[in-house]
Simulated assay, not measured.
Amino acid sequence: MTVDTGKTVVVFGGSGFLGRYVTQALTKRGHRVRIACRRPDLAYHLQTAGILGQVQPIQANLRYPWSVERAVKGADHVINLVGILAESGKQSFDALQSKGAKLVADAARAEGAKMTQISAIGADAEANSRYARTKAAGEAAVFAACPDAYILRPSIVFGPEDEFFNRFAEMTKFSPVLPLLGGGRTKFQPIYVVDVAQAVADTVDGKVAGGTIYELGGPEVLTFRQLMEEMLRIIARKRRFVTIPFPLAATMAKYMEYLPGAPMTVDQVKQLQNDNVVSDAAIAEGRTLEAFGIRPRTLDTILPTYLVRFRPQGQFTKPQRHAGGLDAENQDGLV
């Protein structure tokens, strides 16, 4: 039986994809978890992650300081997972990733709690992407309030509920082609959501040094095209690839932004023009997953566990060793 540490950990954005795994990791270690989110009803399913009363959802909105202060009352450690890939109404990059992070950090400092901030590889105050700039602004605000804070920058995170592989696998069900922005040459270092959650829990347990930015990546560096090829191999489907130059993609995105649930935004096109991998500096300084002693899982060991449903006959489809995409630019002259 897990021993109660008596430590209260508040997780902002705990009802999201990463949040459910962070909650599980924390409860297994005996911490009491308070899930702070806009709609607590969407976090009720997390109560089964621990024993009775160990997980408590609470309403909080990063645009309202009083709700943030109430959520962290009595906390020993505060984790901020809040982040968005596209803006919608009042849910802007600045409001959530910059000002919101500052509110959480200020509240944590006032309560005397430790702080862990989830950022992203590519966070840069000089970036041309608003997403990357506000992530960097959030980091700066956290360190200003809590100099000993932990900041984790993961590459693309994958897992059963991810919005990356699931999204493109779903696309193969009705589209004969898959788009490759900029030729699909952008590099990523995908990391399994459970590995990220373990790293977050380690910061709560003080297993690594604070006041540091850690960059988290998986064991493989792959281009976007290679990620699509691996996905197609696992779901046993063949699709053609269509290369879309970045300037054309940006133009298309301008119009797509007005569609409900926009499939692509101009800011996302800007993000895709930069590789999303652990930096040489982080590797040299030991600010990677190795600092946590975590051995990251590979794509081919995890993707089949949840992408099997996208195979033509589901679990009954025999995987094809060489299934993959055909480059429409080379095959049919499409661009």
Rank of each mutant, 00 (worst) to 15 (best):
L299C: 00
T134F: 14
L216P: 11
K318P: 10
R34I: 13
P154K: 06
L18Q: 10
Q268V: 02
M228K: 06
G325V: 03
L334N: 03
R311V: 05
R39N: 15
A328S: 13
F224N: 12
L152V: 03
P319L: 02
L334P: 00
P147Y: 01
D4K: 10
N276R: 11
I235L: 01
E69N: 12
A323K: 05
V278A: 09
G293F: 11
A201I: 02
T288V: 09
V11C: 00
T8W: 00
E111C: 07
P147N: 00
L334R: 11
Q56F: 03
A144Q: 14
N166G: 09
A145V: 05
A75H: 04
A169S: 13
D106R: 08
M231W: 08
R39A: 13
D162W: 05
R233L: 04
D4V: 00
G159A: 08
Q313G: 02
R63K: 13
L81K: 01
N274P: 00
V33F: 09
G218D: 12
H322E: 14
N61F: 09
I283C: 00
H322K: 11
G211N: 06
G182R: 01
P304V: 02
A323V: 03
E290M: 05
T5G: 11
G314L: 04
V204T: 05
M264Q: 12
